Amino acid sequence: METRLVPYETLSLVQKQQLDTLQVHPEQLPYSGDIYCALNSLLVNPNPAGIKGFALLADDLPVAFLLLKRPPCLPHWADEHSATLHALQVDRHQQGRGFGKACLQALPAAALQAWPQIKALELSVDADNVAAMRLYLGAGWVDSGEAYRGRVGYERRLRWTFTSEA
Rank of each mutant, 00 (worst) to 15 (best):
P116Q: 15
Y31R: 05
A147P: 06
R92P: 00
R151V: 07
S164T: 04
L61R: 02
M133A: 10
R149L: 14
D126M: 06
A87D: 15
G33F: 11
Y154K: 09
R159I: 02
P72H: 07
L68N: 04
R157H: 08
D91K: 01
Q23R: 07
G150E: 02
Q89T: 08
K69I: 03
Y36F: 05
K52Y: 04
L104M: 04
A131P: 07
G100F: 02
V142T: 08
L39Y: 04
H76L: 11
L104W: 06
E9Q: 06
Y148H: 14
A38W: 15
P75T: 10
A132H: 09
G140E: 10
Y136A: 08
Q95M: 10
Q18C: 01
V142R: 12
Y8E: 07
Y136I: 09
A132N: 02
L112T: 01
K119Y: 08
D59Y: 00
P71R: 03
A64F: 01
Q105E: 07
C37H: 11
T3Q: 09
H76M: 12
N129C: 12
S41R: 14
A166F: 11
A109E: 06
V152E: 07
A139D: 04
D60V: 09
L43W: 05
L123F: 04
H86T: 11
L68T: 11
A55H: 04
D79N: 07
D79G: 12
V152P: 05
Q117T: 14
A87P: 06
A110T: 05
L104V: 03
F162M: 02
K101H: 08
T21H: 08
D91R: 00
E80P: 04
L158K: 12
Q28F: 04
E122P: 04
A109Q: 08
M1F: 04
A114S: 03
R134M: 12
S12N: 13
A78M: 03
D59G: 05
H93C: 02
P72Y: 12
P62M: 08
A127E: 11
L158N: 07
